[in-house]
Computed example of a mutant assay.
Amino acid sequence: MSATEPEGLPEPLPEPAVGELRLETVLGALSDPLRLRIVRKLLLESEAFDHSCGWFGLDRPKSSLTHHFKALREAGITRQRQYGLERRSHVRVTDLDTRFPGLLDLVAAWTPPDKP
Rank of each mutant, 00 (worst) to 15 (best):
M1Q: 14
A3S: 07
A3W: 07
T4S: 08
E5V: 06
E5W: 02
P10G: 01
E11S: 06
E11R: 12
P12F: 07
L13W: 02
E15Q: 11
P16I: 02
A17E: 12
A17R: 02
A17K: 06
V18D: 10
G19I: 03
L21F: 01
L21E: 03
R22N: 03
L23P: 04
L23W: 10
L23T: 07
E24W: 06
E24R: 11
T25C: 03
V26L: 03
V26F: 03
L27N: 09
L27F: 11
L27K: 08
G28S: 09
G28W: 06
A29G: 10
P33N: 12
L34N: 15
L36P: 10
R37Q: 13
I38S: 05
I38L: 12
V39P: 05
L42M: 14
L43I: 14
E45W: 08
S46N: 11
E47W: 12
E47P: 13
A48R: 11
A48S: 09
F49H: 15
D50Y: 12
D50W: 11
D50M: 14
S52K: 13
C53S: 08
C53F: 13
C53T: 13
G54D: 15
W55Y: 07
F56Y: 09
F56L: 11
F56T: 06
G57H: 08
L58I: 15
P61R: 07
K62R: 14
K62T: 14
K62M: 14
S64P: 03
S64L: 14
T66K: 08
H68F: 10
A71L: 03
A71N: 07
A71M: 05
R73L: 04
E74S: 01
E74Y: 00
E74P: 00
A75K: 00
A75R: 00
A75C: 04
G76H: 01
T78W: 07
R79E: 14
Q80D: 12
Q80K: 12
Q80P: 08
Q80F: 13
Q82D: 06
Y83R: 11
Y83C: 05
Y83K: 10
Y83P: 07
Y83S: 08
L85Q: 13
E86P: 07
E86Q: 14
R87P: 04
R87L: 07
R87F: 07
R88T: 03
R88N: 02
S89P: 15
H90I: 05
H90F: 11
H90V: 13
V91T: 07
R92Y: 00
R92L: 05
R92S: 03
R92D: 01
V93T: 07
T94G: 02
D95K: 00
D97V: 04
D97M: 03
T98P: 00
T98L: 04
G102F: 03
G102C: 05
G102Y: 04
L103N: 05
L104T: 01
D105E: 09
L106Y: 09
L106R: 11
L106S: 13
L106I: 10
V107M: 02
A108G: 08
A108E: 06
A109D: 14
W110H: 06
W110V: 08
T111H: 06
T111V: 12
P113L: 09
P113V: 04
D114R: 14
P116Q: 11
